[in-house]
Amino acid sequence: MIAIYFKGLIHTLPLFFKGLWITILVSGVSLIAGTALGVICGILRTIRKWGISRLMGFYADYMRGVPFLVHIFIIYFILPEVGIQLDPFPAATIALTVYAGAYISEIVAAGIQSVPKGQMEAATAYGLNPFQRLRYVIFPQAIRVILPPLVGEYVLLVKDSSIVSVIGLTDVTRVGWLTVQRIPEGLMVFGLVGILYFIICYPMIHLSHYLEEKISYESQ
């Protein structure tokens, strides 16, 4: 029996690779967009004026407090009621982008705040404008603090992308869910799903550890 199921699983392998491609695509697009959003919000978060920093703080708290599942339901089921109809792919991308953006903004803000205040004052005294100060003084130093947790956050992003399967996007998890209806060998099917995620996430986790060690070694 198991041999027949195994054969069946081999036949559905192309579907799994298609699903893997969707997973990579949806997390890749949200990774880029989320990083951009996170950097902007992280910079805004360090502005202690007009309640901007408090607003960004609430954005981060909201995303930290509300499960991604609820978040994606809100985007997929509630936006149509205000007239914004979204297909599963854009809805998933937007949900992941906004979600990852919040976490990345916290990482970026922490990175910027880790740079000693004197650096900023010295840059101002040199006559650099705010953009130049960020570009040439703050970021080159902050990036060392930002990079390791940022890569860690990307791992979370890939893993969270499995949840977009609930709105019908056929990523790896959804392919597994569909397959298990015909091949009732849950361990085998979801073992394969796990292996596919493992191939993406494991190297990224190690990259994050490597960066962390390298940076703490350099700063000694």
């Binding site: 893993k159 949840i163 849950g186 979801f190 799903v193 796990g194 995620y197 493992f198 494991y202």
Partner: peptide, 19 residues
């Protein structure tokens, strides 16, 4: 740490009955 919780949940949900 390298696999999503949802896949783990389905792994047990669909996998344990086969055992």
């Amino acid at each position: 740490r390298s696999t999503p919780l949802l896949a783990q949940l389905y792994f047990f949900y669909f996998g344990l009955p086969t055992l």
